[in-house]
Design a binder for these strands. Structure first.
Lengths: 235, 235
DNA sequence: TGTTGTGAAATTGTTCACAGCC
DNA sequence: GGCTGTGAACAATTTCACAACA
């Protein structure tokens, strides 16, 4: 990282909310998990070196994006060779804050919540589902994926006891806001919401939404445009 | 080689100068489901008129974005008043290609596949899970959410019989590519992939990925960066 | 030779601000 | 007075293209 006299990755402190010192673009952050996933696979296969192009293929992006993204972290590639898989994996794991496991709680043990409880993909990628709660008496006490479902009244106690940092909302939409409020009140500041509704959280709390039906609707939009190219006259 | 861009993309792209006309930006398409969801709620509550600002609040975006997004489809608002909920709902439903239900097939009836089978949110938003398949003998024949699980060998026959347009992959990552190949061979051109791996599809087939662990990793990234409570102000 | 790292250009997306209309 | 619709300004993101260099 010693090219010409210009400052790398921290150029242009623009007006107001400009990209500041050490800020990573959101678009880059959203791709880090793809690189992480690809590198885990390469490492397990015993591959020791990877080029930006190979990594791009495995992540479903293009090589320029890979190089640009990695450059925000200072990157550790070797010109003419590529990246050392083990080193880059360690670097990305570190960038993603995955030096240690994160404990999660799943709120709502219906269909989706139950599936998430047993989902192997979380553990493989550095997350530990430490607890699950529900309000339905017939669900409380059941054991799913090695976790016994507690009553939602115990939410705060469980969060404290298990040092939980991430809350996952898998309730019906009508309860999502109150669940989020309870999570925040108990100290959780990162929430993943699967309920198809907007949830408000205070400043400093990060919430992400996954709406499964929305994904299908986006597919439907494109599907609907195949056979009927245009209905309304344009221009 | 086709990653992002505006909507058509599967037929001739044409003139590369300037911003296209009559093409809907991807960012706009991805927000239509949010407006759709909000309008369904308003309609059910008996609300007849909504302003761009109210709609924006319900969708979790801002008013300028709502107006800009809707303007790509024409002018359906009344200045000084707002939008007619019923009319706008019909318009957006139409834009999303939801004039009729879309039949879907779920491939893989493990934890996630089972949850998707019973997921009420799909039917509420215009999708009908018409079939489900798996390869495990102990899963085939079981009934979940009113659907009897068939063997994966019957994939093509089921797709034809039920006029299925959308395939949902809920298998382990190792099988995702072959499942996608089978779906495409059977005529499916829209795929939603929950397996945490990149899946290649031919030109003209649209695939979207939902990686649950990636969502957690993005939360972890930000969680890991909380050094001091002073956050950069937004806006 | 082959591949990274990165300024600069091109493209895409967001916000502003106000004319036009109810 | 209030709200939409939209061109234009602004911002973010992607892609290009090539020097640097192991």
């Amino acid at each position: 990282m010693h090219e010409k006299g210009t400052v790398p990755a921290m150029t242009g402190e623009g007006t107001g909310t400009g990209r500041g010192h050490g800020e990573i673009p959101d678009a880059t952050v959203s791709r880090l998990p793809l690189y992480h996933r690809a590198l885990i696979g390469l490492h397990q296969s015993g591959v020791t070196t990877v080029s930006s192009e190979q990594l791009a293929d495995m992540a479903g992006v293009n090589a320029a994006k890979v190089r640009k993204d990695l450059s925000y972290f200072g990157s550790y590639g070797t010109r003419g060779v590529g990246y050392d898989v083990e080193q880059l994996l360690a670097e990305i794991r570190n960038d993603l804050g995955l030096q240690h496991e994160w404990n999660c709680i799943i709120v709502g043990a219906g269909n989706l919540g139950s599936a998430l409880l047993s989902f192997a993909g979380f553990r493989d990628r550095g997350f530990h589902v430490a607890a699950a709660v529900d309000v339905a008496p017939d669900r409380v006490g059941r054991n799913l994926g090695g976790i016994t479902i507690s009553h939602q009244d115990d939410l705060a106690a469980l969060i404290t006891r298990h040092d939980i940092a991430i809350g996952v909302i898998a309730t019906p939409p009508a309860s999502a806001q109150e669940v989020a409020d309870a999570l925040v009140a108990a100290g959780v500041r990162s929430i993943l919401n699967f309920a198809p509704t907007v949830v408000e959280v205070p400043e400093g709390v990060l919430i992400r939404h996954v709406d499964l039906a929305s994904e299908l609707e986006i597919l439907a939009f494109h599907e609907g445009r195949r056979t009927h190219p245009l209905q309304a006259p344009t221009g």
